[in-house]
Computed example of a mutant assay.
Amino acid sequence: MGKKDDYNKYVDQVSPKPTYVKNYILAFIVGGIICMIGQGINDFFMKVIGLDKLAASSATSITLIFIGSFLTGLGVYDLIGKRAGAGSIIPITGFANSIVSPAMEFKREGYVLGVGANMFKIAGPVLVYGIGSSILFGFIYYIVKIFI
């Protein structure tokens, strides 16, 4: 077992050490910037365009999804994601990125078998379980409301 222990020590010495604090700070800053942009877009829709709160929130989500998809198509969002990590994945722009990235990767195979078949490869399980659980909890809520 001496060789195995020596190998493990060697691997520990040559492996790059993750910079957790730097990663946390970058994720916090980039995620905060994305949220600030979203708040600015929301304020624009409410104060300049004159939408009510609900309509402005929907328009903001749509706009952020478009921006995330557009930046993914240009290859910019992946560069942001390499530095920001979870700061770029958690906001709704990260969801747009998770749908567009596989679609861009398989576009050479055609629109139906390439883009259409692979678009929801990453986000598909999230959508299925999100929609399924919302239906289940909605049904439970409905049953509880009837009997209580």
Results as ranks from 00 to 15, higher is better:
70 F>M: 06
35 C>T: 15
106 F>R: 09
84 A>V: 02
29 I>L: 06
47 K>V: 10
107 K>A: 08
76 V>N: 06
120 F>S: 00
133 S>W: 07
111 Y>L: 10
83 R>Y: 13
116 G>Q: 00
19 T>K: 15
34 I>K: 05
131 I>M: 06
111 Y>E: 08
105 E>R: 13
27 A>I: 03
26 L>M: 14
84 A>Y: 10
92 I>D: 00
96 A>Q: 01
51 L>E: 09
65 I>M: 08
8 N>G: 09
90 I>P: 01
38 G>P: 01
86 A>Q: 11
53 K>C: 11
102 P>A: 02
74 L>S: 06
109 E>D: 12
125 P>Q: 02
34 I>R: 05
78 D>Q: 11
33 I>E: 07
11 V>G: 08
11 V>D: 09
60 T>E: 10
66 F>G: 05
10 Y>A: 11
65 I>V: 06
124 G>C: 00
91 P>K: 05
90 I>H: 05
43 D>G: 11
99 I>P: 00
10 Y>W: 10
121 K>W: 09
55 A>W: 14
75 G>R: 08
40 G>N: 13
100 V>A: 06
27 A>E: 05
80 I>Y: 08
118 N>V: 00
121 K>F: 09
95 F>K: 00
113 L>E: 11
86 A>W: 11
35 C>F: 14
128 V>R: 05
70 F>A: 07
32 G>Y: 03
97 N>T: 10
108 R>N: 14
100 V>I: 12
49 I>S: 12
5 D>M: 12
93 T>H: 01
107 K>T: 09
64 L>C: 06
133 S>V: 01
32 G>N: 06
59 A>M: 10
121 K>C: 05
77 Y>M: 03
116 G>T: 00
37 I>G: 10
63 T>D: 03
113 L>T: 11
96 A>R: 05
20 Y>F: 14
58 S>P: 15
35 C>A: 15
130 G>P: 00
58 S>E: 15
135 I>L: 04
121 K>H: 07
25 I>P: 03
24 Y>E: 14
59 A>Y: 08
135 I>Y: 02
132 G>C: 02
117 A>M: 08
28 F>G: 12
22 K>C: 11
67 I>S: 02
58 S>K: 15
59 A>R: 06
57 S>M: 15
5 D>T: 14
89 I>M: 14
102 P>L: 00
86 A>K: 09
12 D>N: 13
25 I>Q: 03
51 L>Y: 11
11 V>T: 11
95 F>N: 00
41 I>T: 08
136 L>T: 04
26 L>S: 14
76 V>C: 02
